[in-house]
């Protein structure tokens, strides 16, 4: 699954905030971004350096953070309990700052499968997983995930048997949801690093299951 955004790390340091994106003509909204940003800098509201640092901070947030949290929860039952009851503290314990996000962690079990959507906009646990994929923000996903979750999951290749309840979470207000996927059988004795490698972004949205490759 192509969920890696880490490769940006190699080159983003060299980008000046005003560097154009493409060789072709700018779109209206690209010009608008430049105009607004320059005005804000001229007025002393933001600095170019702050913009650059905010982008760096964002690039540093990737699904690997969430994967580390999940792997630790799989390996350590006490930590898992803490993650489910005090997600903020548990996240900070592993050096992941949820920021202003009110995090809710929902656990997939043999009886329940959780799926996250935001039907009104595109709320997403950005502080843990980074920026959301396009499909999460699409009209099709936002419209259908809440009404026919099983069909949508099946389109992603995930079939949930009828004896497992599907619990959809519509993050309409102030909470942000992170799915704690089920640990696959056959991973006993694995290191946390090895476990983290099979925790993809999609498993933490609930649209996929963690699997041994």
């Amino acid at each position: 699954m192509s969920t890696h955004h880490d490769h940006d790390h190699d080159h983003h340091d060299h980008k000046h905030p005003t560097q154009p994106d493409v060789d072709g003509p700018l779109t209206y909204h690209q010009r608008l971004e430049i105009a607004v940003r320059e005005l804000l800098i001229e007025k002393g509201i933001v600095t170019a350096d702050e913009v650059r640092r905010a982008i760096e901070a964002m690039d540093a947030r990737t699904p690997a953070q969430g994967a580390r949290i999940v792997a630790h929860a799989w390996a350590d039952p006490a930590y898992k309990k803490k993650l489910l009851t005090e997600p903020r503290e548990a996240s900070l314990e592993l050096g992941v700052d949820p920021g202003v996000t009110k995090l809710v962690v929902v656990e997939n079990t043999d009886k329940v499968h959780n799926l996250v959507v935001c039907t009104l906009c595109s709320c997403y646990p950005r502080s843990i997983l980074g920026l959301p994929p396009d499909w999460y923000k699409s009209r099709a996903y936002r419209s259908r995930a809440v009404r026919e979750p099983r069909k949508v999951m099946s389109e992603f290749g995930l079939e949930i048997p009828d004896d497992i309840a599907v619990r959809v979470h519509d993050s309409t207000a102030d909470m942000r949801y992170l799915v704690l996927p089920k640990r696959p059988k056959g991973t006993e004795g694995w290191s946390e690093e090895k476990l983290a490698a099979i925790v993809t972004r999609d498993t933490m949205i609930g649209i996929a299951e963690a699997r041994i490759p």
């Binding site: 809440v146 979750p149 099983r150 009828d162 004896d163 309840a165 599907v166 619990r167 959809v168 979470h169 519509d170 993050s171 309409t172 207000a173 102030d174 909470m175």
Partner: peptide, 10 residues
């Protein structure tokens, strides 16, 4: 879907 399926909304 089966009867146990739910949706949580804030």
């Amino acid at each position: 879907g089966p009867a146990g399926d739910t949706v949580d909304v804030e």
